[in-house]
Design a protein around this nucleic acid. Sequence first.
RNA 1: GCGAAAGUAGCUCAGCUGGUAGAGCGCGACCUUGCCAAGGUCGAGGUCGCGGGUUCGAACCCCGUCUUUCGCUCCA
Length: 491
Amino acid sequence: MATQEKVSEHNLGKIISHAKEYGFVFPSSEVYDGLAAVYDYGPYGVELKNNLKTLWWKSMTQLQDNVVGIDASIFMHPLTWKASGHVDSFNDPMVDNRDSKKRYRADQLLEAKAEEYAKAGQEEKGHALLVEMGRLLDAGDLNGVREQIISEGIVCPVSGTANWTEVRQFNLMFSTRVGSVAEDADTIYLRPETAQGIFVNFLNVQKTARMKIPFGIAQVGKAFRNEIVARQFIFRMREFEQMEMQYFVRPGEEMKWYEFWKETRLKWHQAVGLPAQKLKYHVHEKLAHYANAAVDIEFEFPFGFKEIEGIHSRTDFDLSQHQKLSKKKMQYFDNEINQNYVPYVVETSVGADRLFLAVLCNAYTEEVVGEGENQKERTYLKLHPAIAPVKAAIFPLVRKDGLPEKGMQIFNQLKQDFRVVYEERDAIGRRYTRQDLIGTPFCIAVDYQTLEDNTVTIRHRDSMEQERVSIEELRDKIAREVSFSRIYEQL
RNA sequence: GCGAAAGUAGCUCAGCUGGUAGAGCGCGACCUUGCCAAGGUCGAGGUCGCGGGUUCGAACCCCGUCUUUCGCUCCA
């Protein structure tokens, strides 16, 4: 009888320590004291993350018969970001109130003021204020914006004072320069989202893969955002990985597909092992400029419910914008209705690192086992076998009498199909524990009986129970348990 | 970016009113043992986050800085 105690509140610290100590996630450049909000994946972390990415990729491109993949570059033509709106809306003028220590977007303060005027029947005054603000922002006159705030008598809602700092520009896109001669070099950006690589390739993909609407394009890749505050371990990083799928549909049918993906994706997270009660939808009331519907799938992290995936109905905003700026048609001819149109898009966008963190938080388990005198605490990662970094460990019970040789034989055979490890050092109990800590679902022990009848014991991580099976059965038995199809079955 | 707290061995931490570092666990080798973090022997590993200052002397006091966590703030 094991009383189980799941990690719930305020122990992100435990997860972070565990992740570091057992080779999942390290702070970047730790020998130089680290780099804020950047992390590296260690030996087991990379296996787990790769498994999650592969699972997602196959769920999209293999299980869905009308979704294909691409891998676009991180660098893109600068106009891409003009078209997407990032150049304009990823540049925010910020101002702090010195008394309340609160930070605001300067433009939003002025917009709120303009709204007040409008409500008071002074619409023209409000309009004039915004026009002037637009002029100042275009001219890069941040001081002018600050003077506007002060002369309008705008005060901080918290402190009630007008003790404002300078207005400063925050650019959320990282830029670099292409061209070896500095003066001739062009500024280009590191992509702040992977979606645009899909949009600009829409026609290439549609034509070469001969896709018919509705169809989707999937992509896994890095994106970069110069977050003002990056926090909460790998939850919000400046360099992160997205798993995105853009689904192109007939205009007017987007809500049907939006609902379809909303449900499909929630089910997927559950199938990976995230419990239903720790997942919920969060519908956006305030929509981004491109969307006509948006919902987040949130997971209950130790620091609360937070987004792991977004499902957005992006309308034809992106393709239309690219059509406008590139002057290339982004249209599809639909034989069924005999019409040319710019497709609407439903996006599913998972943060790979967030999913990783959710899976890790959920898997981290501390429980008390044994009774009375024998009671002790046990820590292990309850990962779905299909995504566990190591599938099985092979242990000879003792380090003599030919057991190591037999163990190596089994190891060499299994390693062709699975990520397995072989260990003969230390007491077997400790070896079990070490595997528990990294979430290995199966430990195979070679004992004296093995030499007689070619059977071994398989010890199951979660129940700690053992069963005896013949060596010939091993491969198939493990294969069944660790196969992605165990997850697909739940979809 | 603001506020608070913290930073000593791989991890968790101790280190008194300043007198140039310790423990447990872990790690490596060997011996004994053999089914859930076993015992023994030996060993590796720290310029106490970094840089200044005060002092005869700084892990400890002062200043600065970096990093992390938490709370704001921001978040397509």
